[in-house]
């Protein structure tokens, strides 16, 4: 029973990591992803944005089943990935691929580019049509001669293009992009984003785009999920939607605009992200929030709908008529 609109449906996904109890250390557990639900419709780009420790990379790995969730389900094209036998999961992986953050460590240094891009075929036991490698390299804007090079002989941008070519090899429907440009120069970042946009249009792909850069996410994505310490705090139906949650607002204010005419003179947020061990009882953001009340410290807010597709988890959301702090 395939879903006609949504390619990917994540329902109440939770991942807890237990640090093993040592001889002297007590067992501790950390909830990296807590109760996350989201849907990605076919042909769209959904952005997941947040700072370190917000669980966005863990979420990406849960979606692709590189990690087993503690609770919750992931449906891909109507199929519950958690119920698949290993053999069927391997088949399903053809249709969902990942592009990794670090183009340096995501390619085996002993493989030639030809071998890297050909690996999906070997792994899936598929015959590699002659010329397919050249075709894939061409698709990501690389010259065919590069096939015989080793990763260390390429620049960061070229390597990331190789990473994209590998992900495209088996003609997937969904790409999970885990900060694909975070370790690249801005001029190269823009190249890769342009490439991803072109590929999406030409191949009809669907993207789940993970990033810490709200400015980039607002440029690239159709819908935006904002995460803080493992939980979704806000879901924006469009990149231009004004945020309701104070954390999203703060994230937006911390994104420096390349316009000296629009300087912000106050840091909008004090303090730092608390440890994911020992989460507070109430709202995880309360300690840094200027709007926090006593209720925020004792009770955890749940996501509530503000407008169509716009949800926020906050007891004191920013109202429409409130002016943004300058």
């Amino acid at each position: 029973m395939a879903d006609a609109t949504n390619l990917l449906v994540i329902d109440r996904l939770t991942k807890r990591f237990d640090s093993g109890a040592g001889l002297f250390a007590p067992r501790r557990s950390m909830t990296a992803v807590r109760d996350v639900s989201l849907a990605v419709s076919r042909g769209s780009v959904v952005g997941v944005v947040g700072e370190s420790g917000c669980g966005k990379s863990t979420l990406a790995r849960l979606v692709l089943r590189l990690l087993e969730p503690t609770q919750g389900t992931v449906h891909f094209d109507g199929i519950d990935l958690g119920k698949l036998a290993p053999r069927d999961l391997r088949k399903a992986r053809r249709r969902m691929q990942m592009v990794f953050q670090d183009p340096y460590s995501s390619l085996d240094p002993r493989f030639t580019i030809e071998q890297v891009v050909g690996e999906p075929f070997t792994v899936q036991g598929e015959v590699l049509a002659p010329g397919r490698i050249a075709e894939l390299l061409d698709q990501v804007g690389l010259a065919g001669e590069i096939a015989r090079s080793y990763p260390h002989q390429l620049s960061g941008g070229q390597r990331q293009r190789v990473g994209v070519a590998r992900a495209l090899a088996l003609r997937p429907d969904l790409l999970v992009l885990d900060e694909p440009t975070a370790s690249l120069d801005v001029s190269i970042q823009a190249q890769i984003i342009k490439l991803l946009q072109d590929l999406k249009r030409d191949l009809g792909l669907t993207y789940l785009f993970i990033s810490h850069d709200l400015g980039l996410v607002r440029y690239f994505c159709d819908r935006i999920i904002v995460m803080y310490l493992g939980a979704v705090v806000e879901e924006l139906p469009s990149p231009s939607t004004e945020p309701r949650h104070p954390y999203t607002r703060a994230l937006l204010d911390s994104t420096f605009s390349p316009d000296p005419g629009k300087r912000r003179h106050l840091a909008s947020l004090t303090g730092e992200i608390p440890s994911a061990f020992n989460l507070p009882k109430g709202c995880a953001f309360a300690a840094r929030c200027s709007r926090a009340s006593s209720r925020c410290l004792s009770e955890r807010p749940s996501l509530t709908m503000h407008a169509s597709g716009h949800r926020a988890a906050c007891f004191h959301p920013i109202a429409d008529d409130e002016k943004e702090p300058s």
């Binding site: 001029s187 823009a190 190249q191 342009k194 440029y219 390349p258």
Partner: peptide, 13 residues
Amino acid sequence: IPKDGMARDSLTG
């Protein structure tokens, strides 16, 4: 650098 309200295909690097 992406700016607010920038058209989708305007970033080329």
